[in-house]
Amino acid sequence: MVSFVIDGKNVQAEGGAMLLNVARQNGIVIPTLCAHDTVARSGACRLCVVEVTKGKRTRIVTSCLYPVDEGIVVSTKTERVMNVRSLVMQLLMARCPESQLLKDMAKEMGIEPQPSFRVETDKGKCILCRLCVKTCEDVVGVSAIGLSRRGKDKIVGPPFMEDSVTCVGCGACAYVCPTDHIVMESTDGRRKIWGRAFRMKACDTCGRYFAPVDQLKWISKKTGTPLSELSVCLSCK
């Protein structure tokens, strides 16, 4: 156990725990976009910045990747932190002007878009946080999407931006996407994601469409459960 100070409050935590988690456990609000419990933190969105004083040195760190240490002093709401955070927010807004979530967050934090930043028109709502890519790789295990190209041309999507052969249509990427960049359309018996349509399986008991056939096949293959056992939806089980 280590003890340290957050916003003037004495706090104890397991050594090596990440600052963001500890702060949240102690009721301190730190905005984030890319932090999701199912995958490892990456520090991609940069919104979770806080100021940490360790010994004589004070610096800005991303709290999601900062392991807590004995005797550090953390401030989450100083002017310097707010300046950095509002710059990050303004850059994100310039990249994704359509994102309602970013607008709402900015409004809540009292941040106006920076008029001198040129607004992007072709980036959609993607902030390149890689959350979907990591979910697809680590949680689902199919690696159907990735970030391709580089720098300002970097985009998220399946290889060659074509129908991915490995995608199972589970929609986990659309679910974790913080800015709703990934669109998943579900109509009766069909689900469309990444430009590819998936046939849905209707529940044997209630007849409701509950999962893509490809996903059930994948789960069956991965866990060794026979496909017949997967033909009932969760609520009918």
Binding site: S143, A144, I145, G146, S148, P159
Partner: peptide, 22 residues
Amino acid sequence: TLSFISKKMDVPLTRIYEIATF
């Protein structure tokens, strides 16, 4: 060839595509 390498080496095609476009 990229799909072939992906299958042969058991590396996701996305990973190879990432490298090839980077």
